[in-house]
Design a protein around this nucleic acid. Structure first.
Lengths: 259, 259
DNA sequence: AAGTGGTCTAGACCACGCC
DNA sequence: GCGTGGTCTAGACCACTTA
């Protein structure tokens, strides 16, 4: 029964009969209409909440969710190739008049297993953690925690909780650790209670955990960057070029030829 | 109260006291221990289910979930650069003795708004849909639906529901539509009921929707590929190379220089 | 103050897995 | 057949928003 109620409501949302921002019928109304107990209608609504379709607020009611997504481009700052087409794609998600802000917190911590494995250091050895929450118009958009091997960044401006002109890669390059390539990993999962708090997430919002591990040309790890991207606020976008030309012949790549 | 029960169980799972595959205390036991009604313990367990931590099965009990993830590499087949390091990364997620299988279904359908926008055709115009479900050892791993403009693929082997030797890009290239570059989009969300059915997903499993739109050098779209990747079964991995060399000078890119 | 959703109770019966 | 989780009822009181 609760599945039928949920399906009916889902259909009304998808068809546009209940547009984003509108209020669903109250739980009491649904109970009367379907002749069920309120706990049953609550279960139907819980299903929609967990699907990320609606949000419930005490005293207000249940409203249909609206997605406001921004484009997240891992290749930004890499002087990546850009085509007119990708601008057309990103335009669909771009909003204007945004007011960005950032919270920064730098500390020396013990590396957990996950970070230690990526930085090639012993678990629980000291690393520098640079933790940031990036907000737009006052609402948190994503978490960006960066971990560096302690010896690489001690006594640099990376240790100070302020914006770094030119980026931290510039600082590392000056010390002889120029990042040459990086590996991106994405894990799709539900947020931890800590992440829900830091990002003020609604129930039913999954996140992408984007892990960037940067290496020098000598294969030494120089940084491990962890982004937590709420699914309702981001579209992740990449651009790729085939390493063969229009006649099917190989084109030289930055790392010098085909593998 | 139900939050406390959920937090206690979550701690026991994270600490390893309740390892993957083990059974949680039954709802009746929890009700006795915490002196609450069974509906309250059910709510605690519902929370853990929606976090993707546990699965409930009628007649069996509630078990701690185990993740078996495979590596998903969008760059595969692109002759992408490969370093020894990425092999080390992928090794952590690779399982052996896997038995892959595929279901294919090809049909001519009306493009929805999403696909029409990406293929640059009118909404509801005819496109060819090639729908696949890829399974490993009998369990579905991901959905791969590919859409082509009808005129580009009519009377080709893309229309037949069988494996294509060399891939569909090879067939398109022969007809003068060689894919030169592609744009990747990732949307993170909860699965639709249809996706839950096709992939036999457990509750609390988010998915990544990976959309690849391929273009010729003349900026004509040739395909729109939609992958549905369950979060508990995939790690998405990219490798990127900085377009500058160790002295900081630009390196030529496949598309010919910096932007 | 009225109305909304949030939590909780103490029962009931059903569907399923396992012995 | 027994015990598990799945569904549902008919109440109760609380916390919060809005007017």
């Amino acid at each position: 029964m609760y599945r039928k109620i949920a399906a009916d409501l889902r259909d009304k949302i998808k068809s546009g009969e209940l547009p984003p921002g509108s209020l669903l019928p109250t739980q009491q109304e649904l109970s009367r209409k379907y002749e069920v107990a309120r706990m049953t209608t609550r279960q139907a609504i819980a299903e929609l909440i967990n699907e990320g379709l609606v949000v419930a607020q005490q005293g207000r009611g249940v409203t249909v969710r609206d997605r406001q997504q921004m484009v997240y481009r891992p290749q930004d700052g890499w002087e990546a190739p850009t085509s007119p087409t990708i601008d057309r794609f990103t335009a669909a998600f771009t909003r204007h008049g945004r007011n960005p802000s950032m919270e920064i917190d730098v500390s020396v911590v013990q590396a957990d297993d996950f970070v230690a494995e990526r930085l090639g250091v012993e678990p629980r050895s000291q690393v520098v953690a640079r933790r940031r929450v990036i907000s737009l118009d006052g609402t948190p958009f994503h978490i960006n925690d960066t971990y560096y091997p302690y010896e690489l960044v001690r006594d640099t401006e990376i240790m100070s909780p302020a914006d770094i002109p030119g980026g931290s890669n510039y600082v590392l390059a000056e010390r002889g650790y120029r990042e040459r390539y990086a590996i991106d990993e994405f894990f799709i999962r539900m947020p931890t209670p800590e992440e829900i708090g830091r990002l003020r997430l609604n129930p039913g919002t999954p996140v992408a955990m984007h892990v960037v591990t940067g290496f020098t040309a000598r294969e030494e790890p120089v940084r491990c960057d962890i982004f937590i991207l709420p699914g309702d606020r981001h579209v992740i976008m990449y651009e790729r070029v085939h390493p063969i030309d229009d006649e099917g012949r190989p084109v030289s790549t930055p790392r010098g030829g085909q593998s």
